[in-house]
Amino acid sequence: MKIYLIISILLILNTAKAQEFTNIDTVLFNCKYFYEFKQDSTDVNSVRNAVMVLQVGKHLAKFINENKMFSDSILFSHKDEPFTQAKMHKILPLIQGAPTHIYTRYRLYYNYPKKGKTLMSGYFNKQQLEVIEDNSIKWKVEEESDTVILGYKCLKANTELWGRKFEAWFAPDIPIFYGPYKFIGLPGLVLKVSDHQNQHCFTLIEIKKEQGIHPIYFVDNNYTEVSPKDFVKALEIYIANLYSRVSQNDGIVLNSDETKARSLNNLKSRNNFIEKY
């Protein structure tokens, strides 16, 4: 929709400019997850999807939308060049070509900034935000349940978080104690997680060993630290503001009433972030 016009090039320029990249580890394993979620809790047809990547390093791990990872790596590779128009011309199309649904526009770091902590960062309404939490999910492993996913024997564990019940399948034979989103701390890689209503579902689609050469970087943006609740609130306000600008023809003029109604509907239907409070 045209509504995104307001996220102008200038804005990208500003965010891209402020970024500082720190090399915090190197990639030992790359795990890809297919993330399917209903952006509208009341509409079964509102399924959206994204490919998410879990980069596992020696001491920590990072979880990010594949396209966002791609655009980050482009920014990273150009980080030593000063910010010129020429550089922008080089980088911009590459960044633009990175579709990230608003619900996957975060970066997650496990065991960072220190062991036992999880850091999530995001950018909403021109503001860089971060949430730092303890990674201590209370899992209940079911004793008698097993299944095979991608050739790995998996066990099931349950937890309750953010107003949802989740079940996760992990592989004790893969000694990587991470998983998608904030689902970590099980004795084996999490291959699949979904909530009981099947509104958010992560499924492993690829696992690859890497050479430990590619860096895992932390993208520092002078974040303002907020609580997990406020992070979700900022996301909701971001969507509400877009809605308001479309409905009042404020800077976003749609060519017909029909288009306007449809884009309003589309915006309004984004009401189902994985964390609900």
Partner: peptide, 20 residues
Amino acid sequence: MPGFEVTELGQIYYQGKPIQ
């Protein structure tokens, strides 16, 4: 398709920006 938006006039926005 994820990441795409299309206006009624058929113009394509990818990750919020027009494709060239």
